[in-house]
Design a protein around this nucleic acid. Structure first.
Lengths: 198, 198
DNA sequence: TATATAGTGGACCGGTCGTTACAGAATATC
DNA sequence: GATATTCTGTAACGACCGGTCCACTATATA
């Protein structure tokens, strides 16, 4: 019995996700979240317990609907040779999106990681796991792209590319040109290995 | 006539610099700055006008006494061949300093750049200029280290190394291992060019 | 000694923060 | 229709923020 929940929980989380994505955790105020979700203060605390609770759900939503789809071409046993290049180009496109696209705000996790919230052990754990997932995917992409290259060189290359990708995300909002430059550099590094490998 | 200023301005700025370095601009509260400098609220506003005024002086002090000394071996017409390696190793050492050393907090400017203060045009300008200075220094270091390498490859290498260095600074506090890993990768990239160049 | 400046401590301002509480209206099941 | 649950307002809480103001003390020069 009793009234059923009127709003769609996922929709509300997605709206909150956009706010956290753009503003980081600390700078996203509760009134901001009210406005974005269309919910009242009371409803938010009723449904999610706290601002932090809402943030945690937003992070999960971000991983499921934003991060993992983008890494999908680099998952699985047989990765396309061009997938790693496509991934880098896709990233550059998304990050360079003229401010309108949500991805132009970089990475929700890294943005949120700027402030004290990053000292939170749980958040740090999620970020570390995210990075390892990325490194593995890049490694597979490099492997498929340069099958003839020596393993040591492939590892070094994958390390550099992963570093540059993380750097790009960390820097989009501080120095967008630097971020794009880093992704271009990563592409250039891969290309410079290509002739020798053939 | 009148009483002479009792405290040493530079000492106070250095103390404030440490606070901004560790906490960023927004998270450094005025009480924090009182405690660190040993000055009263009134004296701070008397001497520096505002929190922002104190921050600006701290940034200049940081550039003069921290950044530029470290880049000095990469300045001038004749740079030592090993200088770029020494620079990367020195950075890694400083960033890995067991939490006690101030440099373990990364870069004052990048830390401060996380929050709304980075939207400030002046701060953005300082950061961009800082980055260009770094890129030029790394370029000279690479040139001295690999004089025989083709210019295009040297440029690509210098871009990658600069990107990884900036990334390291941006990431020390979020993911210290990633930062150290990035600097090691930069070293490895340089070494991998060495044999061909000889 | 008179006076101008440097310093302290504390009260206070308006504002924002996350969170809690509560009254009342809307909507579901029994 | 009774009742349980979900909503929306709105007010208030205690804490912190940067900044201002003022009365007071200390120390220098003229």
């Amino acid at each position: 019995m009793g009234r059923t929940q009127a709003f769609d929980r996922d929709t509300a989380v997605r709206a909150a996700r956009a706010v956290f994505w753009q503003s980081g955790y600390e700078d996203a105020s509760v009134p901001d979240l009210e406005r974005a979700t269309g919910l009242s203060r009371s409803s938010i605390y009723n449904a999610f317990g706290s601002k932090r609770g809402l943030f945690d759900e937003a992070v999960q939503s971000y991983l499921d609907e934003v991060v993992r789809p983008r890494l999908r071409p680099l998952e699985g046993a047989q990765v396309e040779p061009g997938a790693i290049i496509g991934y880098l180009d896709g990233l550059r496109e998304a990050l360079a999106g003229a401010g309108s696209a949500p991805a132009a705000n970089g990475c929700l996790l890294i943005n949120a990681a700027g402030a004290p919230i990053a000292h939170d052990a749980e958040v740090a754990r999620v970020i570390a796991a995210y990075r390892d997932e990325l490194r593995a995917a890049v490694g597979r992409g490099i492997g498929a792209h340069l099958p003839a290259a020596p393993e040591a060189e492939r590892d070094r290359l994958a390390d550099a590319v992963t570093g540059l990708v993380v750097a790009a995300f960390a820097l989009v909002r501080i120095a967008p040109e630097e971020a794009s430059r880093g992704l271009l550099t990563a592409r250039g590094l891969i290309d410079s290995f290509r002739p020798q490998a053939r």
